[in-house]
Each structure stands twice: as structure tokens, then as C-alpha cells.
Simulated assay, not measured.
Amino acid sequence: MGTIVNGANGGFKGKAGSVIGSSWKSINYIKGLYKKRSKPSSEQQLVQQEKFRTLMRFLLPINVFLQIGFGRKNTEKVTPINAAFQFNLKQAIRGTYPNFELDYAKVSISDGTLYGAGTLGVLYTAGELSFTWDTGVSENFKTYGDDLVYVLAYHPEKDEFMSTPNPGTRANGEINFIVSDHLQTGSVHTWIFLSNRSKTRVSKSVYLGEVQLD
């Protein structure tokens, strides 16, 4: 794929002969028409395809979180979900082809320099998941009471995610939500991360562990 930089004819969209023109974020691109493969995929290609499926199956449903958690990562060249994919591909997949699986403890929902929330906890009681964190703020670290707190739980057996309708704040120190009846078995994996109010700075996400629901 080529990039058009103020060429003689400028950018274009659509098909022209054997190439297709398109643009993204004011950058014009040209690429050749798709050619049907005549050779079977190599073993290395099959491995990469299976890793892609394994990771993207997890990431796609939480794109709204990734827009925040990876929204400042090289945004002129890649989308947040692609930035999250590249980041997690290096660390979060384990196993051998074709039996890849996610190492949830190494999955990152966000990555940044905002100071985190200190001592963290998660507890399941009476049908509710409760997340707790420190409420301390610091001018030196530029952390404030209105920093936003995002929590996420994933139920691997049901392949479903859970979270709150709206983020909490650093000053709250706690947030909880009711777990749907059909999910109150097995266990969930849990994460937490923060952003400032304008969502221009984020913390690294923290894996809080696996929580038993029954």
C-alpha cells in the first residue's frame, strides 16, 4: 500500500484501473486490487491468523474502553483498537497453535502515565461486584478527585463482559454493579484503570484477579 503526499494529481477515492484510492485522517492511500490466493497459507501465516482471531474476539466487544485506554497511542497512524491489539499481541497470548488462549493477567485495557489508584480491591457479595481504590490526590502527580475510574469484568464461560453504565471518580473510592442472574456462576476476570476528566491522560490498567461468583 502506498501513501500519496501531495502528488501531481492529489488524492482520489474509488477504483482507478488496478488500484483503489482511499483516505483516513486526511492521509490519502492507494492500494492494489485484491488478488485471489493460489497458494495455501503457510504454517506461520496460520499461526498469526489464529492469534489474531483469539485476541480480536476479546478486544472487539470492549472497543469503547479501548478508545479511552489506547486513545492517545499513535493516533495519526493506527486506531485505538489496533494499538491495543499490537500491545497485547506481544504479551497476552499463550499456548501453541492451534490451541492459543489469553493470559488474562497480562491483558492490558489501557496504557499511560496517569498515576493509578493505590490499593485496589474487588469483592463479590450478594449478587454484586464491588471495586474499591484509594481516594488520595496529589498536585505533584496531577491526580484529582474528578479523575474517572473504569472497571471491567469478563466471564469466559459465557463470553460476556460486565461494567457500570458510567465511570466512577477517584474521590468516590468505590463502585459496584449487580451481576445478571445468568452470570452468577463460575468466575470473572477483573480490571480497573483511570483517566483524567478530559480523557487526555490514562493510567495503566491493573488486573485485579479472578473472582468466584458461586
Rank of each mutant, 00 (worst) to 15 (best):
P98I: 08
T125G: 04
K90G: 11
Y115D: 10
A84P: 00
T135G: 06
Y124D: 02
K35Y: 08
A84N: 03
L120V: 06
I109K: 01
T79D: 09
V151L: 02
W133I: 07
L120A: 05
Q45M: 05
T75E: 13
P80D: 05
Q44K: 13
L123C: 11
K90L: 13
G112E: 00
Y34H: 14
K25I: 08
A84D: 02
G116E: 05
G32I: 03
W24R: 08
F52Y: 09
Q48N: 15
T75L: 13
V137F: 08
G21Q: 02
G136T: 13
F52V: 01
L129Q: 02
T96F: 10
K31R: 15
R94D: 11
G118Y: 05
G69T: 06
R57W: 11
A117S: 11
A92H: 03
R94T: 15
Q45H: 08
I68T: 10
V107C: 01
I93P: 00
L59M: 05
T113S: 15
K142H: 14
G127K: 09
I30A: 05
Q45W: 03
D147F: 01
F131S: 01
Q45T: 09
E43C: 05
V47D: 00
E128A: 14
F52G: 00
A83T: 02
S22P: 03
K73H: 15
Q49V: 07
S42K: 01
E76T: 12
T54F: 04
E101I: 10
L123E: 14
Q49R: 15
L102K: 01
Y115E: 12
P61G: 04
S18K: 15
F58K: 02
N99P: 06
F52I: 03
N82T: 11
I20M: 10
I30V: 15
T54I: 08
S110M: 04
L102P: 00
T79C: 08
P40D: 07
R57E: 13
K51N: 02
V137P: 01
R72M: 12
P80Q: 05
G116V: 04
K35G: 08
D147N: 10
I62G: 02
F131T: 02
V151H: 01
A117T: 07
G71P: 02
G116T: 07
A117P: 00
A83N: 00
K106W: 07
A105I: 09
P80E: 04
L46N: 11
Q44F: 07
L66G: 00
V78Q: 12
E76V: 10
E128T: 14
L89D: 09
G71M: 03
K106C: 10
W24G: 05
S41I: 01
S108R: 14
T96C: 09
V64Q: 14
K77H: 13
Y34P: 12
Q91L: 11
T143Q: 06
R53C: 11
D146Y: 11
V19S: 06
Y144V: 09
G17M: 09
P61W: 07
E101T: 14
L46I: 07
S18F: 12
V64L: 11
S42D: 01
H155W: 02
